[in-house]
Amino acid sequence: MGNLLVNYGEAAAMILFVIGFSNLLLHKNLIKKIIGLNIMDSAIYLFLAEKGYIAGRTVPIVVDGVQSVEAYINPIPAGLVLTGIVVSVSVSALMLSLTIRLYRRYHTLDLDEISTLLKKEGV
């Protein structure tokens, strides 16, 4: 329990991850699914950023000749977050474009309803 309070950032990230995950899995509405996807991905980035930061240290840019490793944080988690954001932006864009196409055809955002319409269509 104590750990949970100290690592409140990570705990929040995990809760957000579960919220996003279940939104993406369970919602029928495509837009809400995409929102869930973004919450889920952001939660992971929050987790990474939270893990990557050590209180009291600074960005790894040498100023005033301070070269001690103890003074700086590792920049790689931040780099990973950036890479991850690029990936999640592109999958969100792809999902949104697919949603638009489905909406134009079937005039609904409800995935189950679309499936029923497709069954009626036959083919």
Partner: peptide, 19 residues
């Protein structure tokens, strides 16, 4: 219609997996 729906379903499951 079928393939777009299939693509959406594929993406949803796949993204859960990638998450």
């Amino acid at each position: 219609g079928r393939t777009i729906e299939a693509a959406v379903r594929y993406m949803i499951m796949s993204l859960l997996g990638s998450g």
